[in-house]
């Protein structure tokens, strides 16, 4: 279903070259800039798709998340390519990458860093922790105690860390990809709703399909492939992309639509509580970035619908006893709310 949408968008874009009228209609003030950006992003996606096979949609979503200045949570079983995806993004974007493996005996200082007394200079010197990098892979974040989790999440929210009375800014761009095991696994501290809300998106990778898996088995080592890739975007270009995403046009009907979606979750008995205004903002930011990745100057309802499965379900709690997947929840929500 989701990949269907994607093909639609490609085909429609193709069709816009058929008729000059339609092509004119698409001409937007920022389209020149966004078309070069779009070309770079398309190349990036193509390269990434060659390494993480059959997960083009998840790669797009991860990139969207990055462009929308959000953080990404990947929930899945071990070994489906979470780390590979994070490393791949870091490599392609030329970002400084650190991986933090969370464990239950980890302390906040293990992430943020500590001040150590140096005899030579006779003073305390701050040794920055792994959080001082541009892209962080927080692996198995739900294994750490809530205290350690919240140290990371605060850094994500504020873009800075404060230790021993000193506030230190984190590098920009600052992007966290956290992974977690499905929360019903033993020995986990599930992230509470308030902290899940800090992640712009939560996606699942899932097993690769038969063809992709075969290709993976036949192909070269992924680590080596990543190491062999060239940087596709500089951090500066990434930042200008992030700014461009903020300039993507959002029309009144789209705002109406977001409001209708949010209002529905607040009234519908299927959910214990509805989406917050922060969730609505997140939805809009993600849709803007998605439209940018698509090379469009404005947001369409399809953009909202495309990012909704990643943005909304982890912020909702169903009332029913049966656990529904994020895709099912998003599908039900989309089909319940008419376009304004």
């Amino acid at each position: 279903m989701q990949s269907d949408w994607h093909t639609v968008q490609k085909e429609v874009r193709l069709s816009s070259h058929i008729h000059p009228l339609a092509a004119n209609a698409d001409k937007m003030p920022s389209s020149d800039h966004s078309s070069t950006a779009h070309a770079a992003l398309a190349e990036l996606i193509r390269q990434a798709g060659g390494v993480v096979l059959g997960k083009e949609r998840q790669i797009r979503l991860a990139l969207t998340c990055l462009v929308a200045r959000g953080h990404l949570l990947i929930e899945d079983l071990p070994g489906v390519g979470k780390t590979t995806l994070a490393q791949l993004l870091a490599r392609l974007l030329g970002l400084h990458f650190q991986r933090i493996q969370f464990t239950s005996d980890m302390l906040p200082a293990d992430i943020i860093g500590v001040s150590v007394f140096e005899r030579a200079s006779n003073r305390f010197v701050f040794h920055p922790g792994p959080i001082f990098s541009q892209l962080i892979l927080a692996d198995e974040v739900n294994r750490a105690t809530p205290k350690t989790q919240s140290a990371l999440l605060e850094a994500m929210e504020e873009g800075q860390v404060t230790t021993e009375g000193m506030t230190r800014r984190l590098p920009t761009p600052f992007f966290v990809i956290a992974t977690q095991n499905p929360s019903h696994h033993i020995g986990t501290f599930p992230l509470p709703e308030s902290q899940l809300d800090r992640f712009l998106m939560k996606i699942e990778l899932g097993y690769p399909d038969r063809k992709a898996e075969r290709e993976l088995l036949l192909g070269a080592d992924r680590r080596e492939m990543i190491a062999g890739l060239a940087t596709a975007l500089t951090p500066d270009e990434l930042q200008s992309l992030q700014q461009a995403a903020g300039r993507i046009h959002v029309s009144a009907p789209i705002i109406d639509y977001v409001q209708a979606l949010v209002a529905y979750t607040r009234h519908c008995p299927d959910y214990q509580f509805g989406l917050s205004p922060r969730a609505a903002l997140a939805l809009l930011a993600a849709a803007r970035a998605w439209a940018l990745l698509d090379g469009r100057g404005h947001v369409l309802p399809e953009d909202i619908q495309a990012v909704l499965p990643a943005v909304a379900p982890h912020r909702l709690r169903s009332t029913g006893q049966t656990r529904r997947s994020a895709g099912e929840i998003a599908r039900a929500l989309i089909e319940a709310v008419a376009l304004p």
């Binding site: 339609a22 029309s251 100057g297 404005h298 947001v299």
Partner: peptide, 18 residues
């Protein structure tokens, strides 16, 4: 299909464009 795509493209630009 061709006509429909043109119509849809024009509509989305008018409805959701700036």
């Amino acid at each position: 299909a061709g006509e429909i795509f043109i119509i849809a493209e024009l509509y989305q630009a008018l409805r959701y464009g700036p």
